[in-house]
Design a protein around this nucleic acid. Structure first.
Lengths: 140, 140
DNA sequence: TTCTCTGCAAACGCTTTGCACGGAT
DNA sequence: ATCCGTGCAAAGCGTTTGCAGAGAA
């Protein structure tokens, strides 16, 4: 993604575009792997040797507060971050650990209300064995 | 619930029935509030003054390993425990913090496969304003 | 006696906080 | 000069680990 586009994404949410913020945003956009703070930190450390983990925390806090990224929690108690425009659900493989985005057209994702409760966030998340690991039955 | 029933629940999963385990199980069954470790610990401390948090952790680990309780994670990074027989979904109110069980007959809860991935756990979780807080518009 | 549950205390790891430096306006 | 992003170091806090004592079989 072009730098100007990312500056605009930040600007639209009233976030000033610093070098670090752009790098972190770029990483989130280019790597839809739902990275943890540590993933981001370790990867960017190669490009920004002086990077501090605190900055990654600060930046992600800013991004989540402003709604640019969302938090994905799994019962493994690891926090991962997700840059995403459209609502979708997640599938996590118990075997290989991969977290998949699934764009499934299910009605419950569109539901605005349930049992009288007003919904404004949908978190749908499945666990099991992914299609890749199903094929590799012998492996692992 | 009668003690014998609870002993059976544990026995079925090959867990020995100690006093502490029965108390913790009883608490989970009687209080479907998705308590945290601390909730359980604080409540039971009144009945078992010598109770240690380690024991609560140990017991919950045993229970989750054996599948008696499941873990509910919310993006607030708090771990809560859920004793529950039938699959259901959760709704968390952003205002009052209550976590509701919702027994909704939706197809996606029954789905065994998605995009070729084999599903064996469904975690559906919504956030918003609950029906109680919607009514109390003025309050809080 | 042996095995397992329990519980204290310390260790651990992730995240937050306090504060000071430095760059941008 | 001021503001704010950055980053070190320390604190904080929930959870896990090591180990020893107690209790059941």
């Amino acid at each position: 993604m072009k730098k100007e586009e990312m500056v605009k994404i930040l600007g639209d949410k009233e976030i000033q575009a610093s070098y670090h913020r752009l790098k972190i945003l770029e990483f989130l956009i280019d790597n839809r792997i739902h990275p943890s703070v540590d993933d981001i930190y370790k990867k960017l450390l190669h490009e920004i040797p002086t990077l501090s983990k605190t900055t990654v925390y600060n930046t992600l806090k800013t991004f989540t507060d402003k709604g640019i990224v969302s938090i994905v929690t799994t019962e493994e108690d690891e926090i991962r971050y997700d840059y995403s425009e459209e609502p979708h659900l997640h599938f996590k493989c118990k075997k290989c650990g991969t977290l998949y985005d699934i764009f499934h057209n299910c009605e419950i994702l569109k539901q605005k209300e349930i049992d009288g409760h007003l919904i404004d966030e949908h978190h749908l998340y499945f666990r099991g064995i992914c299609r890749k690991c199903r094929k590799e039955k012998g492996g692992n």
